[in-house]
Amino acid sequence: MIKPIIDWLIYDILKMQQGSLFAEALNFFLYDTIKIFLLLTVIIFIVSFIRTFFSPERTRAILSHKHKFTGNVLAALLGIVTPFCSCSAVPLFLGFIEAGVPLGATFSFLVSSPMINEVALIMLWGLFGWKIALIYIGSGLSIAILSGIIIGKLKVENLVEKFSYKKPACCAEELKQTFNDRIVFSRDYTKDILKTVWLYVIIGIGLGAWIHGYVPADLLAKYAGRGNWLAVPFATLVGIPLYSNAAGVIPLVSALTEKGVAMGTALAFMMAVTGLSLPEFIILRKVMKLKLLIIFICVVGVGIIITGYLFNLILG
């Protein structure tokens, strides 16, 4: 539905030459931008509406009675729907631990919550298609569940910094929300997210469109193709400091896969961008001993790298 309108605008109104590099790049840019923003608006609204039913308090209550494997699976799944912001990582982490949520399950949550976020999923769906988006969700969940199980098995509870903690007296009345409250919350939340990501999205899609139109195909195949085994760990490392730009990075990666970057490498890169975030580590250092933080980063990092190799083998 969007495509014919853009074709009409570019080739009939602006009278650009069909097949010229600039016209193609502009077409690509406009189409992706409009599509992504439509998706972002609609889906963030729906997701934030669903989220009004999953406060961190409720998630914690569900998880505090679960053990071992079920706890990890549930924590990873709840990570998708529970609102999360890396600046809240510390109070959330301690809140979970203090309420008796097992350390492993807490980590499953900490991995899946930022990694499987709505913005990343929408960008993946819009630019790579639903199959890649599903693969991303599946691998993200697996990494979250397994990382949590491994960290749980290591018995590293002693590496959590001690804190004084008052039982939450908060928000008992806040949980009662009317339908209207939820709609207002979702509307505001959608506006908030759009406000923070729009520029990154446009720059990302713009650069992507430029690469799509001007960079020769297969330019990167030699460096980031399936043949280069170092590409996956390298992509994972590069992704760590890019957290806040996830929305801009995905369109870029989408264009790069057309130019020879292998799909598994691209997936590993995107997971590192969303799941391993430098600012979050710095914040989490306040509640975890350095050793635990390093274990956490290594377990998740290795999981991401394995996923990258695996999909380079499968997807080709």
């Binding site: 961190p56 809140g95 928000c171």
Partner: peptide, 19 residues
């Protein structure tokens, strides 16, 4: 953390969390 808040920002009036 002493206030028992799990998400920031939060608002406290006279020592009680309201949001």
């Amino acid at each position: 953390i002493e206030y028992g808040v799990m998400m920031t920002p939060a608002l406290a009036i006279d020592g009680t969390i309201v949001l």
